[in-house]
């Protein structure tokens, strides 16, 4: 398949998700996975403003604690913070520049073997609401086409977050953002509940809940809520 064909396929998939049984966290998680595939990067994460002055992780291409942490650590410095504050793309930042610009963050990035970092802004009119963060282990540069695809993915993430409410007001943006951030917390709590009940890792619990939600055509958030209030048992989910 050519890149154009793969790209078309991904946009059809994302558009499909936007229609029925939409779940913002599931959508953004899928989007980070597709970023990794389309751009041949090693990790992708999506950060949103918490509207209190910090960025929070809303989705990442893998749920491993080590990877999530590299995104979480950027609440004070890192490519995402710079991108969020400037509203500009931060691309092809190599090892030396990572060390020079964000010394605290650099050690963590090096630990994971990341040698190149990128962040693309999620913009809504004159406002920046978050950023898509990409890392590669090889010191490979993203070319202009890669960056255009990455930015398109960031724009689709913004549309997905706002959904049909995109034309509406600033207060609706705030409502959606806060709701999405709280859904993420709920999903983390549900991962813990299921991990303990089934003796699996939280990352495995995420996969179990997501697969179940897909099979049952339910939203990931509603499945997480049912796990947390014990109306959905581990056995029904198909976990051990």
């Amino acid at each position: 398949m050519t890149r154009e064909q793969r790209l078309a396929r991904v946009f059809v998939e994302l558009a499909d998700t936007l229609v029925a049984q939409f779940d913002v966290i599931d959508f953004l998680h899928t989007l980070t996975e597709r970023c990794v595939e389309l751009l041949a990067v090693d990790a992708a994460g999506l950060m949103l403003t918490d509207q209190r002055g910090q960025l929070r992780v809303i989705a990442s291409s893998a749920e491993s604690a080590r990877l999530v942490e590299i995104f979480e650590l950027q609440h004070s410095e890192g490519p995402c913070m710079d991108c969020f504050h400037s509203g500009q793309q931060v691309v092809n930042v190599g090892e030396d520049e990572i060390r020079a610009r964000w010394p605290g963050f650099a050690a963590e990035a090096a630990d994971l073997g990341f040698r190149s970092a990128h962040a693309l802004p999620m913009r809504l009119r004159d406002e920046v609401i978050g950023a898509v963060n990409l890392f590669t282990r090889a010191s490979r540069r993203l070319d202009d086409d890669d960056i255009a695809v990455g930015q398109a993915m960031a724009d689709v993430a913004t549309i997905g977050l706002l959904q049909e409410r995109v034309g509406r007001q600033k207060d609706v943006l705030a409502e959606q953002l806060q709701m999405a951030l709280n859904s993420r917390v709920l999903i983390e709590q549900a991962k813990g509940v299921l991990a303990e009940r089934s003796r699996i890792t939280p990352a495995e619990a995420f996969v179990v809940m997501r697969s179940y939600a897909r099979r049952q055509k339910r939203t990931l958030t509603s499945v997480a809520a049912a796990v947390v209030d014990h109306t959905l048992q581990a056995a029904e989910l198909g976990a051990r």
């Binding site: 918490d50 910090q54 929070r56 992780v57 604690a65 999530v68 979480e72 609440h75 993420r184 917390v185 983390e188 709590q189 549900a190 991962k191 813990g192 509940v193 299921l194 991990a195 303990e196 009940r197 939280p202 947390v228």
Partner: peptide, 15 residues
């Protein structure tokens, strides 16, 4: 704002 704290909250609730 750390995911692991929320995961641990879920685990403790079961324990």
């Amino acid at each position: 704002d750390r995911a692991e704290v929320h995961q641990a909250t879920g685990m403790v609730s079961v324990q």
